[in-house]
């Protein structure tokens, strides 16, 4: 009885260690292949189009409304202390340090990350990945490397877009609707944000790019290792990809913030 419990526990641990090892090898192979010529320029463009360009609208929209709600909430919280003039700095700091990178990463995970996992998962179950191997094309290089470069390009740029639209949203709700002087708003925004805050936000965005892409591609790539096969396997790996990406966005966010502050 006791032995059995320990055995099961041990089996779980071994499984976890195995998958950690697999994901590390997957990640290292993929990133090492960035430096292997020829450079996969056309594929990177395609994936940047999918991950970056097609996410612009949804990022701008969510950014705008996040800023609006921050302006609204911040205004009434600050009003209690008579510091509603500091609204600009409250909105700007929250957006640029935290919400911008995190929300952007989550939105891209939902839009592009799930698609990555599903697409690669379908390729796995329909033997397209095996077909690549029979043609002596490294599937990791072919599928993962261009995506991670496209993500590293797209995430910080989309984060910047999110921040700008967020500040605009805060301006609309705080200044146009609640009547804070627009010069005061802009001035508090400008004076409170330092270069370190902005670069910190971009560090986060780049790390999230790596985390999200690695997890999503990995989940799709190893779809066949699930107990469920076929369409069920793909749906499982897509769900896992999104859930795990979000979890690791928050965990890595804490770790980066810890080292940045």
């Amino acid at each position: 009885m006791l032995v059995e419990i320990i055995e099961n526990f041990g089996a779980k641990i071994i499984k976890i260690i195995e998958s950690v090892g697999r994901i590390m090898i997957f990640f290292l192979t993929g990133t090492a292949n960035i430096f292997v010529l020829p450079f996969q320029f056309a594929k990177i463009i395609d994936h940047t189009w999918f991950i970056g360009t097609k996410s612009m609208f949804v990022i701008a929209l969510t950014g705008f409304f996040t800023g609006m709600v921050l302006g609204l909430q911040g205004y009434y919280s600050l009003l209690k202390y008579g510091s509603e003039a500091a609204l600009g700095s409250a909105v700007a700091m929250t957006l640029i340090r935290e919400l911008g990178p995190v929300f952007t990463a989550i939105m891209i995970t939902a839009r592009a990350g799930s698609a990555m996992a599903a697409e690669i998962g379908v390729m796995r179950i329909s033997e397209q990945i095996d077909a690549l191997k029979t043609m002596h094309i490294s599937p990791v290089r072919f599928l993962f490397t261009p995506r991670i470069i496209a993500s590293i390009i797209s995430f910080p740029l989309l984060t910047a877009l999110f921040n700008i639209f967020g500040l605009l949203g805060g301006f609309v709700s705080g200044s146009l609707m609640l009547g804070i002087n627009k010069y005061v708003y802009m001035d508090t925004v400008i004076s409170s944000v330092s270069v370190n805050d902005i670069t910190g936000g971009f560090y986060k965005a780049s790390v999230f790019a790596v985390v999200v892409t690695t997890i999503c591609c990995y989940q799709g790539f190893y779809t066949h290792l699930f107990k469920e096969f076929g369409a069920r396997g793909v749906s499982l790996s897509t769900t896992n990809a999104v859930v795990q990406s979000c979890i690791f966005i928050f965990i890595s966010d804490y770790i980066i913030t810890f080292f940045l502050v």
Partner: peptide, 26 residues
């Protein structure tokens, strides 16, 4: 060369890219 049971053609590429892939990459 290996011809798969379910063809294993790449859905996201057109026919020309599918056929030329082994030549282009290797």
């Amino acid at each position: 060369s290996y011809m798969f049971q379910d063809n294993a053609l790449f859905d996201f590429m057109n026919i020309y890219d599918n056929i030329s892939l082994p030549l282009v990459e290797n």
